[in-house]
């Protein structure tokens, strides 16, 4: 496959799954500028690794792997300023797709923002309907640990959201 057609195919696949990337970028960053940097970094890593994607797993699973590894290990700037939640809200358009309640979604994002990086990955995969086995494989923990963590994370999210409402 030529480099041009490979890039075209890659961008088509990214376009199909860009929801995942945007959600990952949103939960691992606090403002629009960092979000764009992270999106670019993930896209770069995906493109660099695309040549070795053999199709053993689905593109989405492979993408989760690369994107989460990148999001967790990428250089982060020291947080000199407080978390800029207003900016993240401002970045979201006023219009919301279909029946999605923007306020509920914002609450969920804000609650997730308070989790540790690994817990963010676990809950994101759970929200994306990944199986416990898949989550365990992507994170590198046991299935039992996934189950225990999820109970703890869900409880923490509920408490945080309750405190925000």
């Amino acid at each position: 496959m030529s480099s041009g057609s490979s890039e075209k195919k890659f961008l088509e696949l990214i376009r199909e799954h860009e929801n995942i990337l945007h959600k990952i970028c949103r939960i691992y960053t606090n403002n629009r500028a960092d979000r764009q940097d992270m999106y670019q970094e993930i896209l770069l890593q995906l493109w660099k690794s695309y040549g070795s994607f053999e199709g053993r797993s689905s593109f989405a699973t492979w993408m989760y792997r690369v994107a989460l590894n990148t999001a967790i290990t990428t250089v982060k700037k020291p947080a000199l300023l407080a978390v800029d939640r207003d900016l993240s809200r401002e970045a979201a358009p006023v219009r919301c797709s279909g029946a999605v309640a923007k306020e509920d979604l914002d609450l969920l994002y804000e609650a997730i923002a308070q989790l540790k990086p690994v817990d963010k990955a676990v809950i994101l995969l759970w929200l994306e309907d990944r199986t416990y086995e898949e989550i365990a494989g992507l994170i590198g923990i046991s299935v039992k640990n996934v189950s225990v963590r999820l109970v703890r994370i869900r409880k923490k999210l509920e408490t945080t959201i309750k405190g925000m409402v």
């Binding site: 970045a91 979201a92 358009p93 999605v100 309640a101 979604l105 609450l107 994306e128 509920e158």
Partner: peptide, 23 residues
């Protein structure tokens, strides 16, 4: 207040734009 499973449905229905990104 919704429970987490209901929030999960909100999450799944959200688009990139809802996450704060213009395509």
């Amino acid at each position: 207040m919704k429970n987490i499973d209901e929030y999960k449905e909100v999450w799944k229905a959200a688009s990139a734009e809802d996450a704060g990104f213009a395509p």
